[in-house]
């Protein structure tokens, strides 16, 4: 394996849970405010998951105070503390760009029920 592949591999986190676009996740990221570091949570629907290796990123969308907010996170960034999956959604696209045109009831995503194991 060449040096660059090794460097990229070292940056991968093994703590990223399994989720896909359409799922609702909570992203806990570290933010520096007034010289102090604290953890901020952002919950929303994953609309895009793109890139590979250390560069992999997600876009999370939520509607806050009536305004749509989309935030992008680098999955392997040390600033992203952890990610929790709160809901699984059923969608037929890998990029949910259509959500940004829809509001209210139209922007709902069908929820996947946990299968009996």
């Amino acid at each position: 394996m060449n040096v660059i592949d090794v460097l990229n591999k070292e940056q991968l986190k093994d703590t990223v849970p399994d989720f896909r676009p359409g799922d609702t996740v909570k992203v806990y990221s570290k933010v520096v405010e007034g010289g102090k570091e604290r953890i901020q949570m952002f919950e929303g629907v994953v609309t895009v998951r793109k890139g590979g290796g250390a560069h992999e990123s997600i876009t999370v969308r939520r509607v806050a105070h009536g305004v749509g907010v989309e935030k992008a996170f680098l999955l392997n960034s040390p600033r992203v503390d952890r990610i929790e999956v709160s809901k699984r959604g059923i969608v037929r696209r890998s990029r949910l760009y259509y959500l940004s045109d829809k509001i209210g009831k139209a922007a709902r995503i069908k929820e996947k029920k946990a299968t009996k194991a």
């Binding site: 660059i4 680098l74 392997n76 960034s77």
Partner: peptide, 21 residues
């Protein structure tokens, strides 16, 4: 010169780098 990639720094930046052996 080995090539280019991107790495996370300790302060959380994601920067493009050239790797030199």
């Amino acid at each position: 010169k080995v090539g280019m990639t991107s790495v996370f720094t300790e302060d959380g930046r994601y920067v493009p780098v050239t790797v030199i052996e």
